[in-house]
Computed example of a mutant assay.
Amino acid sequence: MLTREGKNHSRIFSKLYFTEDASLSVQTLLAPGDLVAVADNGEITLLAPALQKLPERYLQVDLLKQWQEFLYWVREFFKEQGFVEIQTPGLVTCPGTEPSLDVFSTDLVLGSRREKLYLPTSPELHLKKALALGAEKIFEIKKCYRNGEVTTHHQPEFTMIEWYRAFDNLASIKKDVAELVKYLGSKMSSVNGPKAVDSFTIAQLFKRDCGFELVPETNKEQLRELATKLGVDVSSATQIDDYFFLLFLEKIESQLPTEHMTFVENYPPYQAALARLTEDGWGDRFEVYWQGLELANAFHELNDAKVQAERFKEDLAKKKAMGKEMIPLDEEFLQCLQAGMPPSGGIALGLDRLFMALTGVSKISETRLFPMK
Rank of each mutant, 00 (worst) to 15 (best):
M1I: 04
L2M: 12
N8T: 14
S14T: 14
K15R: 15
L30E: 05
V36C: 11
D40F: 11
L46W: 06
E76N: 13
E76L: 13
E85D: 13
T88S: 14
P89K: 13
G90R: 10
S100L: 10
V103C: 13
F104P: 11
S105K: 14
E115L: 15
E115C: 11
Y118I: 10
P120S: 13
T121F: 05
E124M: 06
K142D: 03
R146K: 11
E149Y: 08
P156D: 08
W163I: 10
A171F: 05
D176Y: 10
E179V: 09
Y183C: 04
S189D: 14
S190T: 07
P194C: 10
T201D: 01
I202W: 00
K207V: 03
R208L: 15
D209C: 05
T218R: 00
A227W: 05
V232K: 00
V232W: 05
D233A: 09
S235R: 11
A237K: 04
F245P: 02
T258E: 15
F263W: 09
P268C: 01
P269H: 01
A275S: 15
D280H: 01
W282T: 00
E287C: 11
V288G: 06
Y289D: 06
W290V: 11
A298P: 02
N303K: 07
K306N: 09
V307P: 01
V307A: 13
K313A: 09
K320W: 02
E325G: 00
E332D: 15
L337T: 06
M341D: 09
G346Q: 01
L349A: 06
M356H: 03
V361Q: 12
S362I: 12
K363A: 02
S365L: 07
E366L: 12
T367R: 10
P371F: 13
